[in-house]
């Protein structure tokens, strides 16, 4: 009854009834981050994370910090344990601090194991097609063509962002490369994007339709509270390329790039070459705003293969493991690409 009366008073008059629900102090900010993750993050189970124990470790540290810089360090150390590049935080200052879980060590190293310029300059025939993602790009991003001296096609997909229209070229690309004996689909350093885009592109390489994975989204405060799974199938779309394909991946193949690879790896005519991908599949939450101006976001979903295992925390495991040597990359050599050509021959 009291609550009803209070609600009625609020309804009738006061905007002051609408209050912030997070206090602007160090402990409250830490608690909000921990609680939001606890109630909405989708990856605790496949990543074997004991979130309560992390609270036990980091909460006392958050209570004792003296300034925001120290609070930042405590929060990011806690989030880094997840090794999930979709968990990120920013201090909302231009040129300020940014953080992505698990990014600092292996992803940044992996990025240096690939240079598109090497492929264009040293491996492709001169009649390749290159598309810049936007006018501010200094370098060509989306590329397709044929390997010099071989009847092998090559496609580089930089990301699956909707604002970049390269994906609309995929049918033209397939048409141009349909007479090749085999194809190299390169998604190394693919930064991800929208699932609708990677699914659109993947359909052009599908031969056999089958159930390949499901996605569930958190819908409650317990770590295993999820909506009913939505199943995805490898459905051929449009003009498809079904000759032998080598797909190239590395540890900087992230997010929608990884989901694209679930589709690709499901097909018998595709062989995956490279190193395990980043392991950040799920769509992220919207950004969560903090009263000190920071914001953070995190994934809320669970990806499962039909056998019940999850690629989260693991990534796409290549059929053949190989990494480039950064020293050779600096010399213009791409051993992965050379291996792909050998395999296709």
């Amino acid at each position: 009854m009291k609550n009803t009366l209070l609600l009625l008073v609020c309804l009738l008059v006061f905007s002051s009834c609408i209050k912030d629900e997070i206090e602007n102090n160090h402990e409250a900010i830490f608690n909000f981050i921990w609680t939001e993750m606890d109630e909405r993050y989708g990856g605790f189970i496949p990543r074997n994370i004991n979130w309560d124990s992390l609270y036990t470790v980091y909460h006392p540290q958050a209570q004792n910090v003296e300034d925001e810089s120290q609070l930042w360090d405590v929060c990011t150390r806690m989030l880094d344990v997840l090794d999930d590049q979709h968990v990120s935080m920013s201090d909302n200052i231009i040129g300020g601090k940014g953080f992505a879980s698990g990014k600092i060590n292996d992803e940044l190293v992996a990025e240096k194991e690939f240079r598109l310029k090497n492929i264009i300059n040293n491996y492709l025939q001169d009649d390749y097609v290159g598309i810049m993602l936007d006018e501010e790009d200094e370098e060509i991003q989306y590329v397709y063509g044929t390997i010099e001296g071989e009847n092998i096609g090559y496609i580089y997909m930089p990301n699956f962002g909707e604002s970049n229209d390269w994906y609309k070229e995929i049918d033209t690309t397939i048409e141009q490369l349909k007479d090749t004996d085999g194809l190299i689909v390169d998604v190394r350093n693919n930064g991800g994007g929208l699932p609708v885009v990677n699914r659109y592109v993947a359909g052009r390489f599908m031969e056999t339709e089958k159930y390949i994975f499901s996605v569930q989204t958190r819908n409650g405060p317990e770590h295993d509270d999820f909506e009913e799974p939505i199943k995805y199938y490898s459905t051929p779309e449009g003009e498809t390329y079904t000759k032998p394909i080598i797909a190239l991946i590395n540890h900087s193949t992230v997010s929608a790039g990884e989901e694209f690879m679930i589709f690709m790896q499901s097909q018998d005519h595709v062989t995956v070459l490279g190193s395990p991908t980043s392991n950040a599949f799920s769509a992220t939450s919207f950004e969560k705003f903090l009263p000190n101006g920071w914001y953070f976001k995190f994934p809320t979903q669970l990806y499962l293969y039909p056998d019940g295992t999850s690629p989260e925390g693991v990534g796409i495991i290549p059929d053949i493991y190989q990494v480039n040597d950064t020293f050779e990359v600096n010399l213009g050599i791409d051993r992965l690409l050379e291996s792909a050509v050998e395999l296709l021959n």
Binding site: R40, E162, L194, P195, V196, N219, S285, T300
Partner: peptide, 13 residues
């Protein structure tokens, strides 16, 4: 519950 669920992600176009 989480703002952006699979329905939103798969219908973002």
């Amino acid at each position: 519950y989480v703002g952006l669920d699979e329905f939103v992600a798969s219908n973002s176009d």
